[in-house]
Design a protein around this nucleic acid. Sequence first.
DNA 1: GTCTATATAGCGATAGAC
DNA 2: GTCTATCGCTATATAGAC
Lengths: 204, 204
Amino acid sequence: MNKPRIKSELKRNQILDAATLQFTQHGYAATSMDHIAKLAGVSKQTVYSHFGNKDELFITAISYKCEQLGVTELLPENLGPVESTLTLFSQRFFAMITSTDSMAVHRTCAAECVAHPHLSKLFFEAGPLFVIDKLANCLAEYHRRGELDIEDCREAAIQLLAIIKGEQWTRLEFNIAESLSEQEINHYLQRSVRLFVRGYQSLG
Amino acid sequence: MNKPRIKSELKRNQILDAATLQFTQHGYAATSMDHIAKLAGVSKQTVYSHFGNKDELFITAISYKCEQLGVTELLPENLGPVESTLTLFSQRFFAMITSTDSMAVHRTCAAECVAHPHLSKLFFEAGPLFVIDKLANCLAEYHRRGELDIEDCREAAIQLLAIIKGEQWTRLEFNIAESLSEQEINHYLQRSVRLFVRGYQSLG
DNA sequence: GTCTATATAGCGATAGAC
DNA sequence: GTCTATCGCTATATAGAC
């Protein structure tokens, strides 16, 4: 008779998965509670008993996705030569931000930034700000070693991250059909790191 | 008795203005034909007699905004010293892409890139692609003069444009409250141009 | 706790008067 | 060409059976 406890947890996750998929795919307004319930394989009332209303479900689903953003390790544990470290970083970072999940959450938060400012801020802090800090620390270390001559490491981190996104990320944001091959992307990343290193190299 | 002709044109523009505002502010699904009609000061039937249905009105409104994107002249007619030209360009470009209009259309097209791929492509070509080509031509000229050593001018243009957007543009995309002052932005732009020029300068 | 059935409101789109 | 009034439909959210 006391099965409900565990059964509820399972259904809760089913609902959250379905909600995340629908919200990030079709947007907040175009997603209906009926569709979420059907996709999760539960009744609509079950959805409401778990999350109260549509807004709460949306916030719970997207918040969870935001908190998962910073899990991937982007920098190697031991920092080797500048160019190889930053090249590796750029490849990992680019792969992360162009993943289907990342793109979907990004689009959703941006689209809802007026109606749900708390969510867009959550995404911004867990995503962009989080990575800026990490890279800035890395650049500071290379500056300390005398391998890079950087006055403002946070600013430099912002610049490198922006270059990495380049045109390709925007193409994905707008769902443009023609996109670059993996080889072309790696070529672009490698040359972008080179531009960055050359722009900040120590002359003395 | 034959006033309708001219009166119609006026109402048509009122409807288009109202539709653009609502669609870019609240998104496609969250905008209703009733609200547009009320905001435009006409009846709903008048909206339908002019534009047929919601989708057609949306496409007409956003397409018009997209076509207006490339009107601002970003580069000076006569190209002077590299750094001053690119600094001026960066300021104009940044002002353009961070305008309320640009941001609103960008967000709308990105949010609707699956349901309305034609619109997002229109925006991408009239915006990003258009500017990339213009800047690439400019960089090619400096390469020809021997002031910059650029192997791939289109790639370099993409890199500079990306740096200019930097973190600040993303803040605006997500409607983050705290943003930089005009002075801080100009400082960032100036130093970004310097990084770019230093990374691509001719060594001899 | 979970289901089916339903209340209420707002949507896109249309009909008919003037 | 423009208005008011209205049709169907679907949305969010709730009520009551088990």
